[in-house]
Amino acid sequence: MTSPATNVATSAAGCAAPDQSAPLPSSVDLAKETVITGFVRNAEGEAVGGAYVRLLDGSGEFTAEVVSSPEGVFRFFAAPGSWTVRALSRHGNGELAVDAARGVNEIALNVATA
């Protein structure tokens, strides 16, 4: 499909979530970033892609949402502190509290029908 605009980077990066299964960009400084990452799995332990994974802050307020990759991977860039990660999917929902510290925080999030 052609487009009147050529495919070049715009001045401001968008707010949509980047590819969740891509490796961490080399520009990301793990001494400064607090990364919360992990997998969404169903009751059978299979990866759930296409799940809507949201990050809620300490007061339960929405902070961000990504769609898990086909491998079930998600990733957030947060700050040290208490967070809740919650997933909605065709295979059911699930959530997990996370106490995040600077660097990479890995979690496993299971979803199941209620």
Binding site: P25, D57, F76, F77
Partner: peptide, 19 residues
Amino acid sequence: RSPDEFAGRLLAPAHLPQE
């Protein structure tokens, strides 16, 4: 924006790097 961006604790939505 999210409360943390409003307050200045985060600089971008939390699915993006904060630098």
